[in-house]
Write a protein that binds this DNA or RNA. Structure first.
Lengths: 248, 248
DNA sequence: CGAGAGCTTGAGAGCTGTCAATACATGTGG
DNA sequence: CCACATGTATTGACAGCTCTCAAGCTCTCG
């Protein structure tokens, strides 16, 4: 499926180093890493290339070592929605592998990317023996479930403008409580961001325009300056969004 | 939080029996069940009572032994959306417990229900020693992630009518490939179903009416007769919905 | 019968998508 | 340097899906 120069882990050096840096594997000891590395393959995935397709059987876990991968679902009549944009350090395919299901989404490189693929066999062997690996995977799946639940909430409770402002504020990540204007960079072209937010390109463009007119942001290409954090934060009033809330 | 008659597992008999029947615990051996049962509490939760609230800390795992629980999220200004209706045999709270997060949703009984609560401590102890329990939990979280992803897809790709027909067809569950008219019973009052489908009560009513006019279904209270399964199945053309699809 | 909950129906408005045209950016070749 | 092609982004007009508000209906239960 994926072409490009593939580097087998013969010397077992660089690939092991690489694997250690993935959060998914961070808690494994050196021996476990070595076993996984032995059956791992590293390859480049150029922009536009498909990593796997929705409905295909799962061959193993894909670790994104660099670049950016677009996860998307498509309808019967061809249109598609971006569910998530995945960058370096994250992993794909655990769910399909663990449940022996087909892939729920398609994955395509939207930038020249580097993938490390862990074969299904070694992963299962490691899972069978290594309780720590099991725990790491469980943690990862929990993280993903939390994220997906939050995404669902956003689509159920928020309108387009609120989803956009929420997305922009999320890109600030750290710096969280500052009130100073800050500039962020959109992680992909606007049509992809729009789809990720379940908006058309046109609607997304209009929303950004309206936010500019309101003096909340300034847009220059992919650079977005968040001018009025205080007001931006009041727009998306998701209940769980802010710090704490006195539930009950 | 929960009142009603609570039955401590002193004799250790009936509670153990009960626990064995939960899919989440089905793969545990008798000893593990006994340990969990020792710290379990069973109680009744009358219709309308809240099991836990969004944002509250998690006290353990809740097993639904009977009745029906509504999981919902609410906005800052009071409106709420039903995310899921949970019946007997399923469990709640694993995610919050495992991640030590607050509850992402609120849970409320929408029928007189019976809950068995497993304390956090014993669950963690069992998780630490018992690889099989870890695997069972992992399987459960994976199932939930798959379901939530499917829900998200439904809301992103389908319109109201398609979500309704998809929901009705899901209630057939088994009998899957028959083409004979079949009658199903809505699992809750229509306003709850509507919210679960992210529709207003009014819109849901109109959709059912339209489907009746089209001769696709017949509605009598909560009984819905699916008259033309073939045409119903063609409405929601989710890609992953049907049997297999030749991906790639 | 009356009260209330659940459900339906109608009219109007809002958010968002579709289609089409235009601008803007970038890179290529003459 | 300009002309052109391509990919990207914006803008406008319009239609559709869905929500809101309001009223009326149906059924059950006391």
């Amino acid at each position: 499926m994926a072409s490009g120069e593939t580097t087998r882990s013969s010397s077992a050096g660089p690939l092991e180093e690489l694997l250690c840096n993935f959060p998914l594997l961070a808690e494994l000891d050196r021996g476990a890493i070595r076993l996984l590395a032995r059956a791992a393959v590293r390859y480049d995935l150029p922009h536009g290339r498909v990593l796997f397709r929705q409905g295909a059987p799962c061959a193993g876990i894909h670790l994104v070592a660099g670049g950016q991968i677009k996860l998307s679902i498509q309808t019967a009549h061809g249109s598609e929605k971006v569910i998530e944009l995945v960058g370096a350090g994250r992993s794909l395919g655990e769910l399909a592998l663990l449940t022996s299901q087909r892939y729920l989404m398609s994955a395509e490189a939207v930038a020249d990317s580097t993938i490390v693929q862990l074969g299904a066999g070694p992963v299962f062997e490691e899972l069978a023996q290594n309780g720590q690996f099991l725990r790491s995977i469980l943690r990862e799946v929990c993280t993903r479930l939390t994220r997906r639940t939050r995404d669902l909430e956003d689509h159920l409770l928020l309108n387009g403008t609120q989803r956009v402002t929420g997305f922009l504020l999320d890109l600030l990540s750290v710096d969280a409580f500052s009130c100073e204007p800050a500039t962020i960079t959109l992680p992909a072209k606007k049509s992809l961001i729009a789809s990720r937010l379940n908006l058309t390109q046109e609607h997304f463009s209009r929303i950004l325009h309206d936010l500019q007119s309101a003096g909340l942001i300034a847009v220059h290409g992919r650079q977005v300056c968040l001018l009025d954090l205080r007001r931006l934060r009041t727009l998306p009033d998701r209940v769980n969004g802010g710090a704490r809330q006195d539930a009950c």
